[in-house]
Amino acid sequence: MGISHYVEKREHEITEYFMEPQQILPAFVSHLGSKNRFTNREVEPGPPHEALFFVLAYLDVFELLVMSEVCMPFRDAVSRDVLPWRNIIIDRPLNSRLSDEILVQITTRAHGRLRTLALINCFKITDDGLQTVIEKNHLINKLHIPGCSGLTP
């Protein structure tokens, strides 16, 4: 129930900046020529299907971290791409694991272009941690921090 509500919200975020991932995609279109190489994927593992690079922009923090561990092409795509990191939403299950230090590390991937930061029940986050992130990211226009009990109200 909580999840579906959250997905709704995320869809909204994504349509909002939909055009931007498009601009980085021509780089991947060059993969199109080899589109049939995946036909036998059930038989033996190979390089990732080119379509999956398009999906990266639709993933949340946890899935982005997972994808960057799957293979080198994903790791490189995730690390050089600022776009997926501009809207960061931390909800369950990552909320209880998020410390100030990790928050700063994760938001640094947006290279100062963080726009949306939603920390839902991230109780380890302190004023100092949030302050650091906001100082480094002047473009934040949406901040949503319900249930972050470590912050001064």
């Binding site: 033996e44 593992p45 190979g46 949340d60 994808m67």
Partner: peptide, 22 residues
Amino acid sequence: VADRIENKSVEYVRSFFGIDND
């Protein structure tokens, strides 16, 4: 596709999409 890999492990994603661990 994003929904299908939500909350999945690295190993799951690799076998799900037939990706080689390089």
